[in-house]
Design a protein around this nucleic acid. Sequence first.
DNA 1: CCGAGGCATCGACGGATGTCGATGTTGACA
DNA 2: TGTCAACATCGACATCCGTCGATGCCTCGG
Lengths: 124, 124
Amino acid sequence: MPLDLIPVPTTASAACCSPAPGPTMDATDAERTARTLKALADPARLRLLSIIAAHDGGEACVCDLTEPVGLTQPTVSHHLKVLAEAGFVTREKRGVWAYYTLVPDAVRALTAHLGAHLLDGPGA
Amino acid sequence: MPLDLIPVPTTASAACCSPAPGPTMDATDAERTARTLKALADPARLRLLSIIAAHDGGEACVCDLTEPVGLTQPTVSHHLKVLAEAGFVTREKRGVWAYYTLVPDAVRALTAHLGAHLLDGPGA
DNA sequence: CCGAGGCATCGACGGATGTCGATGTTGACA
DNA sequence: TGTCAACATCGACATCCGTCGATGCCTCGG
């Protein structure tokens, strides 16, 4: 595109609309990070993770979780599935019970990723 | 409800359904944290924050943000409002332009809060 | 005083999400 | 083998959320 076709802002008094000095988060990364954050952005799921983390060994079965959060068993199962798909917990079936275990590295990876892009960003 | 009406699990072979050893995140805190996380759990808002953080001084005006994210101006304005209400950015109007500034402490507070409840939880 | 431009708000629409009851699946035990 | 219990899946519903076009507000320049 010819540069002389771009209208020069003759009345632009101050310096505004600079393109973006440093590199920013690309669309793919933003989508992945947003999906991971969505898994955490729910009161029930936060409480479930907190209860699991409070248990010895960082694991708990569904029957430990249904009553404290005040939701039905299918709903709790659904939330645990969301957390598992996001990588925050792993599922292990022992006999009749299903034990969910916290994955601390998933939490650490998320917080580190946010910090890298928003705090110690390459542009700062 | 009379306790003797509760059927005793005579066949409960293993130890399951323990109440919860350590203290967990209460409902109010979970709701507040979830609301803050929801503000971040969107690809457009993550990119907006990233672009703002990449600018010098951690501030940018709306005209800097509309084109990179590929959304209309009203949509960008809406996302910025969500981010401002969650405390991640502050708005300052200079002349005709509105400058949004990143609040790093908001990001740090969130990640620290998550870590405190899910990693170095009081029960671990 | 009037026009232009940057930004916020409004109203509406489609899609995603949380919740439930009902049902299926699977393992333990008699 | 049949029954019970724990958990997952399904279908349905209400609600929330992201997006847009249209419009209003406010500031600057003429």
